[in-house]
Structure formats: C-alpha cells, structure tokens
Computed example of a mutant assay.
Amino acid sequence: MIPVLLADDETMIRAGVRAILATDPEIEVVAEAADGRSAVELARAHRPRVALLDIRMPRLDGLAAGAQIRQLVPETAVIMLTTFGEDDYIARALGEGMSGFLLKSGDPRELIAGVRAVADGAAYLSPEVARRVIELGGGLLARGPAARDRIETLTEREREVLALVGAGLSNAEIARHLFLVEGTVKSYLSSIFIRLGVRNRVQAAIVAYEAGLTT
C-alpha cells in the first residue's frame, strides 16, 4: 500500500484527486490538508510515502511546505501539483529536492503513474511540465552541447544509469535492468549527482534529456 498525503486549498480539487487515486487499490490517501502548515504537521504525524502538494496554498506555500517535509520526514517523496502560468514556482522548485511535477489538468493516468514512480524512488514529470522545466532550467542545468560536455565526465556505467534515470526508472528497476544490486545503483547516483553538480533526480533526468541520453 502507498500512503499519500494530499494538500490543496480547493476542496473540489482535493475531491477530484482523491477520486482518481482511489481507482488504484494500492494507493491510499491517509490525510488531507487545506494549507501548507497543516500539510507539514500531517506529514510528521502520518509519515506518508508520497505527499501531493498544491504549489499555491495559504499559510505556507507548497514549495516551502515541501522543503520542510523533505527535511522533517525524509522518507516522504514530494510531488508538486501545478498549473500553466506558474513558471516562477517551477523554477524555484528545481533546487528544492522535489520528486515530481504534475499538471492539474493533465491525464488522470499521469497522477497514478507519478505517485507510483516517486513511491519507488524515481522522479516523475508530466510531459508538458517537463518541457517547461527544461526551458526554465537556466543556470541550474546544462543544455545542449554543454550538457553533453558534462556527461563526458561520467564513466560508461554512470551514463547508463543516468539514461535510465532520465527514462523515469526507479533504483530497483535500474538495478534489475543492469543486473546490479540496489545499493550499487545508489552509489552510482551519488557519484553522478556530484559530477554533474545537480541536487536531485529531477535535475539529473533533465540533464540526461538535454544531453540526448533520453528522448
């Protein structure tokens, strides 16, 4: 079972997201919040596997709440729920260690896929959001030739791991694909993050995309 915390200040949005998640018998919404501060408190109390947070919320916005949850409950992966027109929030979130971005108006199947992916330790971006994140990467991320230059610092095995991160695979899936133990994959990822100068899987996945390792 994947326990999920859902936080959004709009009651109808919460109801819709909850209804979508309820279609997967392996996902359970264990707590709901209408503001960021309550989301942090509920995350500490319930310690969910995944927290789905709206970016814009009263008392504490989703980015600040997500950062606190990552610090206080590190086992909880955070997905930001966003809409078009919130580019400044998306840009800020690149460096905050969030595990994914989902578009509120996107395909409901992406919501299920995103929760399952980050619960397994992978990163997940809605395709539309991924394109905007890549465009907004700015100084945080290498682009085009610069990205290809940066991955040249990686070993052949590290590039294989990075490509699979870019394809959205979790650590366990990467381990099975490359016939490695999961602990070895984690070691490779730590080295990759340092060599590329990125802070999380989302940034690494975008570098992989920009370098042409994934499409």
Rank of each mutant, 00 (worst) to 15 (best):
I134W: 10
A130V: 06
V115M: 09
G139P: 05
L103G: 02
L141K: 02
I112W: 08
L103Q: 07
A113R: 06
A113N: 05
P108W: 13
G100N: 03
A130W: 01
V115N: 03
S105E: 15
G139V: 06
G139K: 07
F101N: 04
V129Y: 00
L140P: 02
L125G: 07
F101Y: 15
L136C: 09
A113K: 11
G139S: 09
K104W: 12
A119D: 06
L102K: 01
A123L: 05
D107K: 00
E135A: 14
L136A: 10
A123N: 08
G106T: 00
L102C: 04
G139H: 06
E128K: 07
A119W: 01
E128T: 11
A122G: 08
I112Q: 03
R116F: 10
G138H: 10
I134Q: 10
L140S: 13
L141Q: 09
E110M: 07
Y124T: 07
I134P: 01
E135S: 11
V115C: 06
A117D: 08
L136R: 06
G138Y: 08
V115D: 04
L111N: 03
E110G: 00
P127E: 11
L102F: 07
L141V: 11
G139Y: 04
L141S: 06
E110R: 05
L103Y: 07
Y124V: 03
G137C: 09
V129F: 10
E110S: 00
R109E: 15
G137P: 10
V133W: 03
G114D: 10
E110N: 12
G106C: 01
V118F: 07
G137F: 04
R131I: 13
A122E: 07
E128F: 05
A122F: 02
V133D: 08
V118T: 02
G100M: 12
G137L: 11
L103I: 12
E110I: 00
E128G: 08
E135F: 08
S105K: 00
G138W: 01
G106H: 07
D107N: 14
G114F: 06
G121N: 06
G114A: 12
R132A: 13
L125R: 02
L102G: 01
P108M: 14
L141C: 04
E128C: 06
Y124W: 13
S126E: 05
A130I: 08
V133H: 04
L141T: 07
L140I: 14
L111D: 04
I134G: 09
V118S: 09
L140K: 12
V129S: 05
S105R: 07
R132M: 14
L141N: 02
G121D: 07
K104S: 11
L111Y: 11
L136F: 06
F101H: 11
